[in-house]
Design a protein around this nucleic acid. Structure first.
Length: 415
RNA sequence: GGAGAGUUGGCUGAGUGGUCGAAAGCGCCUCCCUGCUAAGGAGGUAACUGGGCAACUGGUUCGAGGGUUCGAAUCCCUCACUCUCCGCCA
């Protein structure tokens, strides 16, 4: 949620900033609502003050045994007027709030301007790509079984077997241990979250169709960002503890509504996938350097895995709803002959902190923190990259050195 | 699933119809004192939000939502959560 004061005071600035990311503010309806709100709020608060005063007088009369009937008449009148005015005000406040919840975060000034992903900027390339192998992961190994998964659940699920299941487990352990080494505190969290949590991180109310909802009004988490960030919802943090760095491995659940026919083959786009998430709760003055730090933490994983990748800086038009600045890390996928997203590292500035009410106190008063997060990394896609990039072309997949202690071998034999 | 107890400020915790946004303690801030540190003394310190250029001045909030009342932290109802005991159980 953006700051409503900014909207009131710098409407034109906010409006033009939002246009760069393709969002057009409904100016007349905001202005009308805001003018009305101001008028009604002043009236309502005046009436409330009146009632307070009159009730005090009423009490005094009553306790000294005097007649209260005349005063009661006045109070009743005040209360009646208050009730109608307050109802009107609530309605306007609700509309205003709905409008506000719908507005995406403002892009940071450093974000390149652009309309779509075509305008994103490649800012780094790492490793050298090998175009000799064009087989995809399903063709290389039989231990990824989507037909079995279809029997169990449906499309966009997978069953992993044997060494591939083990390799996934090795990847998870390696990534979590790397995060811990980089100063992140490990959490094990619930995989279902309540509505308030999803509102806090920005998935609700706008993106409900992307989530799986249970019959108990809980949602399956689409990312560990939700539980990890909401650990701090409604908390006052100690300024000296910032930045707080936390991590968790969780499965992630996404309905993928609206992506019918897209990435239908293999592990690339599933309803359920494993991910290690990195979250930093930071001081607003240092959030950009924290984002750089988090991005480096995510890249380190790919470098240790010896996988070629590139970093993309998203342009204003391609930014996610809650983000003010985002770097995507894309890993080389031989079978697709292109780079695919494996992590998205974002600075949400105070957007989530305002929704989730995460603050710290200092001598200047109460301040919203900034929240940063990114994957470190998406395990399913990492598995694909590893299988496809490390396939020797005939009968084995090389296991990188950093995984050997977790996997127990330096290669996977294919039969 | 059954029975009971709770939910109050940054934290602990008093408060059972008006003088309560709320005692006390802790923490924090400012000042005093001590060579430094520790201890001690004085004062200040809830959040959110409106109006106003400002000085300043209103409103809301005691788990959430309803209700009773001129007036609710306090009484009633519904819900959520926490704790204890019983049952069941990985």
């Amino acid at each position: 949620m953006i700051d409503i004061k900014k909207l009131r005071d710098n409407f034109e600035d906010v409006k033009s900033s939002l246009i760069t990311r393709g969002y057009s503010l409904d100016e007349p309806s905001f202005k009308a609502l805001e003018d009305n709100r101001k008028l009604l709020q002043v009236e309502v608060e005046k009436l409330q003050a009146d009632r307070k005063k009159l009730s005090g007088e009423f009490g005094k009369l009553k306790s000294s045994g005097e007649d209260t009937s005349a005063l009661k008449k006045t109070i009743d009148l005040t209360n009646a007027e208050l009730e109608t005015k307050d109802l009107e005000l609530q309605e306007i406040l609700n509309s205003l709030n709905a409008l506000l919840l719908d507005i995406p975060n403002l892009p940071h000034e450093s974000v390149p301007k652009g309309k779509s992903e075509k305008d994103n900027v490649v800012i780094k390339n790492y490793g050298s790509i090998d175009t000799s192998n064009t087989l995809d992961h399903l063709e290389i190994t039989n231990d990824i079984d989507t037909e079995l998964a279809a029997k169990l659940s449906g499309s966009r699920f997978a069953v992993l077997k044997g060494d591939i299941a083990k390799l996934q487990r090795a990847l998870i352990s390696f990534m979590i241990d790397t995060a811990i080494k980089n100063g992140y505190h490990e959490y094990y969290v619930p995989f279902m979250a309540n509505e308030d949590s999803l509102i806090g991180t920005g998935q609700l109310p706008k993106f409900e169709e992307d989530l799986f909802k249970t019959s108990d009004k809980l949602y399956l988490i689409p990312t560990a960002e939700v539980p990890l960030t909401n650990l701090f919802r409604n908390e006052f943090l100690d300024e000296k503890d910032l930045p707080i760095k936390v991590t968790s491995h969780t499965p992630c659940f996404r309905s993928e509504a609206g992506s019918y026919g897209k990435d239908t083959r293999g592990l690339i786009r599933q309803h359920q996938f494993e991910k290690i998430e990195l979250v930093q709760i930071t001081h607003p003055d240092h959030s950009m350097s924290c984002l750089d730090n988090l991005l480096a933490n995510a890249c380190e994983i790919l470098e240790k895995l010896e996988l070629p990748y590139q970093i993309i800086e998203l342009c204003t038009g391609d930014l996610g709803f809650s983000s003010s600045k985002t770097f995507d890390i894309e890993v080389w996928m031989p079978s697709q002959n292109k780079y695919r997203e494996i992590s998205s590292c974002s600075n949400f500035s105070d957007f989530q902190a305002r929704r989730a009410n995460i603050k710290f106190k200092n001598k200047d008063g109460n301040n919203l923190v900034h929240t940063i997060n990114g994957s470190g990394l998406a395990v399913g896609r990492c598995l694909i990259a590893l299988i496809e990039n490390n396939f020797n072309g005939s009968d084995s997949i090389k296991v990188p050195e950093c995984l050997e202690q977790y996997f127990g071998s330096n290669e996977i034999k294919i039969n």
